[in-house]
């Protein structure tokens, strides 16, 4: 043994000591100083997973809404919006499920909200209901005509649109969409069997339009005018197109 040591050159012994100390320190640090959770993947992953699991939840999921809002929930689930979860429109509601009185999720009623999904875009799948927000009943909030929990395209009575499809389509995008054809047109039953002989009537006086648009009428949110002094000798529809009334942006 002694012979072996004397045979090893002197510098080698010195170097071995230096390197030995160095690696000893590294091994010591790795072995005893570095916390266990950094070395063992199992442990540090557990702590990472726990941290991840502790993250705050913001979206409550739609199932829980039914517990209180069962009416709206059931209505929604039968209509075209059945695939939508409540938080698509109402926003994250976890806080609301915990403190129902302190935090109320917003219900977007403005016109700008629905077009986020329903504006026409050639990239959207065919068949998905889309509108042109500039032409489609401008300025009116969507929920005036469509119930967001049970949205439906508004339809003209089948009997009229069978022949007057062009008018029906025009009217569907207008302010007058909610008015049925017969509100303005006097249509005898015979008009359906012999449309050319027995014609549907058009308003001959201003009274009909005045019932909504006169300055003294009680109907809200429609343009008002002094119907009986405005526009000289003409009947309203001779200047205005009632199937797509002009919009007067003020």
């Amino acid at each position: 043994m002694k012979i072996f040591f004397t045979k090893v050159p002197d510098p080698i012994i010195r170097l071995v000591i230096v390197f030995g100390v160095f690696f000893g320190v590294i091994l010591f640090v790795r072995g005893f100083v570095i916390p266990k959770e950094l070395k063992e993947k199992g442990i540090h992953r557990t702590s990472a997973i726990e941290r991840e699991l502790a993250s705050e939840i913001h979206y409550a999921g739609s199932g829980i809404c039914a517990e209180c809002h069962d009416e709206e929930y059931d209505l929604k689930n039968e209509g075209y919006h059945q695939k939508l979860s409540c938080e698509v429109c109402h926003g994250p509601a976890m806080e609301h499920t915990e403190e129902p009185d302190d935090f109320t999720p917003p219900a977007p009623r403005q016109r700008k909200f629905c077009p986020e999904c329903h504006t026409y875009n050639p990239s959207r799948p065919t068949g998905f209901p889309q509108i042109n927000p500039v032409a489609h009943n401008p300025l009116r909030p969507c929920i005036d005509c469509h119930n967001p929990h049970d949205p439906k395209p508004l339809t003209v009575p089948r009997e009229c649109s069978a022949c007057h499809a062009q008018i029906a389509i025009t009217k569907a995008g207008s302010h007058h969409v909610m008015l049925e054809c017969t509100v303005c047109h006097d249509t005898p039953d015979e008009h359906k069997s012999t449309p050319r002989l027995i014609r549907a009537g058009k308003p001959v006086k201003r009274d009909l339009c005045a019932s909504c648009h006169d300055k003294d009428s009680g109907v809200k949110e429609v343009p008002k005018i002094d119907v009986y002094t405005h526009g000289e000798k003409y009947v309203c529809w001779q200047c205005h197109s009632p199937h797509m009334p002009e919009v007067n942006h003020e």
Partner: peptide, 22 residues
């Protein structure tokens, strides 16, 4: 994270939850 904190509690990831078209 595929909303790891949600899916481990049986919920859907937030993006899946709010996708109106599923």
């Amino acid at each position: 994270t595929l909303c790891y904190h949600r899916i481990k509690k049986g919920m859907l990831p937030a993006c899946v939850e709010v996708c109106p078209m599923q």
